[in-house]
Design a binder for these strands. Structure first.
Lengths: 234, 234
DNA sequence: CGTGGGCTTGACGCCATTCAATCTCCGTGG
DNA sequence: CCACGGAGATTGAATGGCGTCAAGCCCACG
């Protein structure tokens, strides 16, 4: 799906034909990255900007005691470090959870893009602001909801995000329970218990790291999910 | 402190004399807002952009059951909704916690500013990206640390943020325990117990909604606080 | 002087952690 | 071909952090 990036950005700003063509040009070269591999590390001041074309990656930090905290999930069409030049250095790491296809784009090329394609630039900022909105919702989720609702809420969000790039049918979420636990801030053991109850209640259908949602409405009700914060265009 | 805004932004980009003058012009008119009053509400598409000159405000959401979740604290020099035009509508509310001095700036004026003053525009984006970094750290804090460390971590952050705008001596944090509890995602009762232990351990000196930190190093050690994520220029 | 908001304290219960053991599935090497 | 080992999933029991409920205290304010 080479046009996933354009499709995602088109959710945030009306892109025109030449914008999409420019984006297609930009991501002509990609590489594959195995699962559980860092793309950028905490402290880096990377010379390339990265985007995910396929697979799932995450932003994470490692605490002094070795525990990992996942602060964002990156799916196809997402940018890893678009505006890192403004901050100067990474304050977290980005690593793959599953095998991924990734593009590396030189900073100079990005700067040219942002300067000469205002609609693309605006869409890039839109994506960054949506990332921030997602972070705020995760904070609410973690602070106020119990683990079962929290897990359901995450599944709803990811389902809609995959749908928004036209990948609704490919939604399977091949993450381990440990990765889910690190995302929600709970232990693996508890994550497993929560998943078991969601499965027993028929809210999700999950096995072998493949999830299916039989009734998204029901899951959204259970999670008190309001898609407002994703700022999708409908 | 009329130059607080410039001082904060100068942490993110080298501002020159005319930039600072332009900023001073911009915030010539301000108004006072009482405590516990909304500045912008969820769903708004505001025609003014707001900044805090004095006092403490917060970003928050209200859950279906009426509980409040505070997702960010805004202190003097912080912008409330700088780039809201790109997202189109507020996905959360912003309200004062204490009495505040606030400036309202017309969107058109902001757009002129961002177009004609690239260094200011860059600094504005820097501030937005730092907000995002703070959100990430709060997520880690909430997910992985116990309430006492979490509270200490928040105090460290706020102390440094006040110091970074030259207000270290004015740091007092006149928030109620309920407001702190909503920020950390814990109950008022537990917040009170945690504050009591921190006070008993001599880590903070707090009474009548006035906090003092006798030994910031000790508090930072206790909280495992690493100021990296604030992207301060030293 | 009464009232309400915020702070404080105690008892009890639950959600989630911790520790530990078992099971399944795979890939690898003998 | 099968033994072995490691990763991930699953389950049980005990512990503890935090929430819930409830009552009492302090103090500013009308």
């Amino acid at each position: 799906m080479p046009n996933t990036v354009a499709r995602k950005l088109a959710n945030g700003a009306a892109l025109q034909a030449d914008d999409k063509e420019r984006l297609r040009d930009l991501i002509r070269d990609w590489r594959t990255v195995p699962a559980r591999t860092d793309i950028i590390r905490h402290g880096d001041d990377p010379e390339f900007v990265h985007a995910i074309l396929e697979g799932i990656a995450c932003r994470y930090k490692i605490l002094p005691d070795g525990r990992r905290s996942i602060m964002a999930l990156l799916i196809p069409g997402d940018w890893c470090d678009m505006h890192i030049a403004i901050l100067g250095r990474m304050d977290h790491s980005i690593g793959t959870l599953t095998p991924c296809r990734v593009v590396d784009i030189a900073r100079s090329e990005i700067e040219e893009l942002l300067q000469n394609h205002p609609r693309i630039a605006r869409a890039m900022w839109w994506a960054t602001l949506v990332d921030e909105a997602v972070l705020r919702e995760w904070l609410v989720n973690m602070g106020k909801r119990r683990a079962d609702r929290q897990m359901a809420h995450l599944f709803c969000e990811l389902y809609l995000r995959f749908a928004s790039i036209g990948w609704a049918e490919d939604f399977a979420l091949p993450m381990t329970q440990e990765q889910l636990a690190d995302t929600l801030g709970i232990t693996v053991v508890h994550a497993q218990r929560v998943i078991a109850t969601l499965r027993d209640d028929g809210l999700i259908d999950i096995r072998d790291r493949q999830i299916a949602i039989p009734d998204i409405r029901r899951l959204m009700d259970f999670a008190e999910f309001d898609p407002d914060y994703l700022h999708l265009p409908y």
